[in-house]
Structure formats: structure tokens, C-alpha cells
Design a protein around this nucleic acid. Structure first.
Lengths: 232, 232
DNA sequence: CTCTTTTTGTACCTATGGGTTAATTTGTCA
DNA sequence: TGACAAATTAACCCATAGGTACAAAAAGAG
């Protein structure tokens, strides 16, 4: 493929297609892994470049600098999260089952996306500076609160939930164990062993979390109640 | 070597005292802050040196390399934590009050030591590699489990606690919200506002956590029960 | 088929920062 | 009191990795 031009010294002979979006996607995918694995300062741009199908030059072309790339990764990952949340349909469930579903889904979603968890951990190490700087993100996590507010309101109207139930607090209570379960697995299991991280124990933990949350919110709730079809 | 004193070219003239322990302590204190602030790769040895009352060379003299220093910091911080745990006396309290006290103390201890939290976050980013490598640490966190086991056993004997209550799970349930409350404050408040982080809301959150835990463990428990002096 | 714009590759620059060399002071103990 | 070890200092080294300069090749417009 060098007939016609015959680069004598230089061998510019690659024939690429114009597909900036695919190139960006590719970079972001690799960068996500690298940042999640090593953090912002720990990540290595040369290493990222080596794992992409393009070159270091393109990273700087599209994302400006390391921080720009990190920010793009962060935003993409948060967006994905939001999409997952939006998929959850809870409106046509009873308040108790609805809440139980939200807890269960949150716990499972966290367990299924350790990469996301790691990026959030890293962002917290940076005091959420990049998240704060982003203009698309502050409103992202709105939908989960809306869902909780809906369930909460319906639960109170039906006389099933305590008056003290608060959507934001509830989100905090649901996120905390779900997040910690993944984020602190390494130090926890190093200190106390792997016992809690077998599939069976994880199932149990999940049900306990559901019971705890429902116990705090549902009047007269008793453990195991989330399993019953008539969740009174 | 240039004539008694009188350094014409070199000015080695500082006069220092020998106090290795104090120097090490000083280095560790500064290094703890730096590592907690920026992580292992983000921390800068020159910066640490600049903030100590000694020199960069001494850091390498006492701790070998950056990782050695990080490990020393980690171990010291875990040791401090253990000492705090040991101070908690729970044996002469009833099971319910005892458990409530453990939850309250854990929540407050986490809130009071953000530096420790950050180091644990960072260590989790590194998959607990340095914690695992340390020989003094794996047995460190034993005492808190022992305390929980004691409370648990007494609660069961008294017929107050559910049979399902498990010390390790309990520790997980107590740590999760206590840790998350500090570790994820930055992203949480960026996403949802600072509402939950005022002193009053933190108090409320703490009581809710206590209620959740006790609700999961104590038979027939009802919210606010931890406050009553006769914790039946 | 030019001309412009976008996309890409290669080679290079250079500040940063982890780590080292070698000398110098202080204390100690025969 | 002088050698020896421990503690400390100042100055230096240099690999790494973030970032850039330059220019070529492809695509699109007209």
C-alpha cells in the first residue's frame, strides 16, 4: 500500500476511517479502567494510550489533558448509572414492595459495578472537585430521590409508613451499606476474613439490609416481610 | 576539612540534637496528613519533607522508600484506632444498651477521624495490599468483634436478641453507615446538597442508625428504644 | 481536482519527584 | 581521647510521564 506515494523516509501507511466517536469511546473505556484501578494521579497516560487502538496524541486531541480525560470518564460513568436508575419501575408496586425493590436493586447494582464504585471512591478522595465542576452532573441523581419520594408519599397516605420517613435520608440509608459492601471489601476481608463475601452470605446480607430499612420505615414491620407477597 | 571551622565554601553549620523517635514521629504525623490528602501516588515526598522539621534524606533513612513510609503511616493509624476501641467498656451494660453504645460510639468515632477514613479509602483503592502485607495488623481489629460477640451472646441468653444475630454481620452493619457517612460526604453532598450534614441532621441520622441496628437484632424493638433507660 | 478542515503519527521536550552519594556532626564506650 | 556507630545534612542524579511541535494523510466542499 505505498505505491503511488512511496514514502521514502516516512512510512505513513495506515489508512484510517473517520470515526471520532468510536475513537473517543475506545479511549474512555480504557481510561475508565485505568483510572478506576490506579486513581487520578496513579493512572498513566502512556499506559492508557498503549491499551487503546489509537495513540497518546489523540487523547490530548480529544480531551485536552489528564484531568479533562478523568472528568470525561467520571461524567460518562455517572450517566450510565442514571440510565440504570431510570429503568427501575416502581410506580405500580405497593409502597412496601416498591421500597424493598429499590433497596434490593441498589444493593445488586452496586455489587455489579465495582468500577463505578472505585471511581466514586476516588472522586471522594478528591473532595468531589471534578464532580462539582461538571455542569451535567449535579442534577443527575435526581431520579432516585423522586422515586423514593413517590414511594414514601404513597406509604404515608396508606398509613403504612412512619411520618418520620424521609426520601433523602432513606437514600442515604440504602446507599451506605450497598456502597460500603463493595468499597471496603478489601480491608474488611483482610481484617475479618472473606466469610461475608460468599454468594450465600451476600444474599443474606442483602435481605438483612432490606429488613433493616423496611423496619425503620414500615409501621409494625417484622423481618422477612419483604418476601411475602401481601406486604402489609 | 577546611581549617577548624570557618567554612568558606561549605556552610555546614546547623547544630542538631539526636532524637530519632521524635524525628520519626514528626515524619509520620506529616506523612499521615499528606497521604490522607492525596493518596499514595498523589503524595509528594518533597512536600512531606518540607513540612517536617527534618529533611527528605531522613525519610529515606528511617522508612526506606515511599511505600515503606505509607505502610508505617497505615500501621500507626490502625493502631490508634484499636486503642480507641479498647477503651470502650461494654461488659457491665445490658445487651441492648451495650449494643446501642457500640453503634453510637462507632458512628461518632468515624465522624471524628476523617483522616483515618481517608487512609482506609486509599488502602481499599490499593486492594488492601499494604494492610495484608503488614504482620501486626491482621489481628488488630479483633477486639471489636469480641465485644460484639459478648453482647450478642448475652442478648440471646436473656431472650432479648434474635437467634439470627451474628457478631461479624453486626459489625458490618454498624461500620457501613458510619463509614459511608464520612467517606462519601463529598459526592453525596455535591449530588444532593448539604442537608444531611448539619449537626442536627447528623444527630438524627445517628439515632436512626441505632434504631435500624437494634430493630434488626432486638426482638420486638421499637424506634427510640435505645433512649429509654429500661431497655426491654 | 484543488483547498480547507479534521484526524492521526512520530519524535521530541522537560519539569517533576523518587531516590542516592558522600560528607559531617553527635554521642558513646574502650 | 580517639575510634566507631548512629544521626543528619546538602547536593546531586536521572527515569518517568505529562505534554507539545510538526507535519502528513484522509475526508469533505465546491
Amino acid at each position: 500500500m505505498d505505491g503511488g506515494t512511496e514514502g521514502p523516509t516516512k512510512k505513513r501507511r495506515t489508512s484510517w476511517k473517520k470515526d471520532p466517536e468510536a475513537v473517543k469511546e475506545n479511549i474512555l473505556t480504557i481510561a475508565t479502567q485505568e483510572f478506576a484501578a490506579h486513581g487520578l494521579s496513579g493512572a498513566n497516560i502512556n499506559e492508557i494510550a498503549r491499551n487503546t487502538s489509537t495513540s497518546k496524541r489523540m487523547i490530548y486531541y480529544y480531551f485536552g489533558d489528564k484531568e479533562g480525560l478523568y472528568q470525561a470518564v467520571l461524567e460518562r460513568v455517572y450517566s450510565t448509572l442514571r440510565e440504570n436508575e431510570d429503568r427501575l419501575k416502581v410506580e405500580n408496586l405497593g409502597p412496601v414492595e416498591g421500597l424493598a425493590l429499590l433497596v434490593r436493586a441498589t444493593f445488586e447494582a452496586h455489587a455489579a459495578t465495582p468500577l463505578f464504585i472505585r471511581l466514586v471512591m476516588i472522586e471522594n478522595i478528591h473532595n468531589a472537585d471534578y464532580l462539582r465542576r461538571s455542569d451535567i452532573i449535579p442534577r443527575l441523581n435526581r431520579s432516585i430521590i423522586d422515586k423514593l419520594a413517590d414511594v414514601c408519599a404513597r406509604g404515608k397516605v396508606a398509613g403504612l409508613f412512619r411520618d418520620s420517613a424521609d426520601p433523602l435520608e432513606l437514600h442515604w440509608m440504602i446507599s451506605a451499606p450497598s456502597f460500603y459492601n463493595v468499597s471496603n471489601r478489601a480491608t474488611f476481608s483482610t481484617s475479618f476474613g472473606e466469610a461475608l463475601f460468599t454468594p450465600e452470605r451476600q444474599e443474606r446480607l442483602k435481605e438483612h439490609v432490606i429488613d433493616m430499612i423496611l423496619g425503620a420505615v414500615v409501621i409494625g414491620y417484622e423481618p422477612g416481610g419483604a418476601m411475602r407477597s401481601d406486604a402489609r
